[in-house]
Simulated assay, not measured.
Amino acid sequence: MACFSSTLQHRGMHKVLVPKRSGVHRFACRALYRALLRQCSPSVGNAPWLGEAKSLMRQKFRQYKSLDSPSQTKNALKTGYSTLDLLHSACKGNKPDEDRVTTILAKHKTFRAEYVARQRELADSRPPKQLGSKQVQKQERIRKQNETTRRHPDAESIFLRPRTVVSGKRRVPVLVSARGVPFLRFKKPQPRNLSGVIRNKLDRRQKWIDRRDRLQVELLFAGDEDAWDDITNMEDSVQWTEELYTAFKDVKEKTKNEDMKNKEMAEKMWQIVLAERELAEKEERERQSET
């Protein structure tokens, strides 16, 4: 391998240099890019086409930043420097160059509109893409989830269970606790309306807890204020801690009542699970005896 490399060097064959991997090349391109953008800034001139020209510069540099061909890179840089001279002359008030810039921008705008129209026509003419089985199943799951966004008008209360008669095999629910909020799960996925109710309850409880913790801290400062009033013999009919303690007691009572309601609801739901389980076992024994 070493002999082969020395032979290539002896014959004058050089390693191919990729421009975009050269630090010197990248520095030159960035300097040209910054110069073009500065030339299109409002501080240079007040031409109405400056904003459109600046957008075009950014688009072209994104388009050509991955060029590998030295010849194409050379032509792109040559065009960039010519454009810089043209913009500089147009911003200085050269009427022919200004007309040339506006003509180039108008042609680009027309070409862009025609290109978008052609692409839209091609997209409309293509036959609809056939979905795979997994995509069909995914869309079906999304459709069913959207149907459960609102509670069904004929839905009955969960506490009317267990049903005495069911069609098919009885499905025994599972008692689930979502951070203290109990509910019965019969199947997955979970209905969206149920998820919304649970989320609202948890958000409300969290707000109460945050308020309780904040009031606890404020009570400490209020106690210090009352102590200072006693030291300075300040006579005030209402203490600093009075209103804060009333609010703290209220939010603490709300949290406690909510927890008690969840506990009672969980006990009722557990009785439903036991009754459903008993009926399911009874129906299973009846099916086995019939066979």
Score class of each variant (00 low, 15 high):
7 T>G: 07
133 S>T: 03
139 Q>G: 04
45 G>M: 00
273 V>D: 06
59 Q>T: 12
146 N>K: 07
188 K>G: 08
106 A>P: 13
82 S>A: 14
85 D>M: 11
140 E>D: 13
261 K>F: 13
16 V>F: 08
56 L>C: 10
266 A>N: 05
69 S>C: 15
118 R>D: 14
79 T>P: 05
92 K>L: 07
263 K>V: 11
203 D>T: 08
169 K>D: 04
282 K>V: 02
82 S>L: 13
97 D>L: 02
207 K>E: 14
191 P>W: 03
211 R>L: 03
86 L>A: 10
179 R>H: 13
48 P>R: 13
194 L>E: 00
241 T>Y: 08
104 I>E: 01
131 L>A: 03
228 W>H: 07
65 K>E: 05
187 K>P: 05
156 E>V: 09
65 K>C: 10
170 R>T: 01
5 S>L: 15
137 Q>E: 14
259 D>L: 09
269 M>H: 02
215 L>W: 07
239 Q>C: 00
261 K>C: 08
110 T>I: 10
51 G>W: 02
233 N>E: 12
33 Y>M: 13
221 F>G: 03
290 E>H: 12
40 C>T: 10
216 Q>V: 11
287 R>D: 08
36 L>F: 07
40 C>P: 03
281 E>F: 00
86 L>M: 07
143 R>C: 11
178 A>P: 06
122 L>V: 12
282 K>L: 07
226 D>R: 06
128 P>N: 11
259 D>P: 06
46 N>I: 03
119 Q>A: 06
14 H>I: 08
34 R>H: 15
257 N>M: 10
76 A>P: 04
179 R>M: 01
162 P>R: 08
287 R>G: 04
183 F>I: 01
166 V>M: 00
246 T>F: 15
284 E>H: 14
34 R>C: 04
127 P>C: 06
262 N>R: 01
152 H>V: 09
147 E>P: 05
62 R>I: 02
238 V>Y: 10
103 T>Q: 13
55 S>M: 13
20 K>L: 02
90 A>Q: 06
151 R>F: 03
252 K>N: 12
134 K>Q: 10
7 T>Y: 09
29 C>G: 12
265 M>Y: 00
200 N>S: 14
91 C>F: 06
205 R>A: 06
275 A>N: 02
222 A>Q: 05
143 R>L: 12
225 E>G: 09
192 R>H: 05
87 L>C: 09
164 T>N: 05
189 P>W: 12
171 R>M: 02
224 D>E: 11
180 G>I: 02
155 A>M: 03
192 R>P: 10
54 K>D: 01
222 A>E: 05
3 C>L: 15
291 T>E: 14
98 E>H: 09
91 C>P: 00
231 I>Y: 11
160 L>D: 07
75 N>T: 12
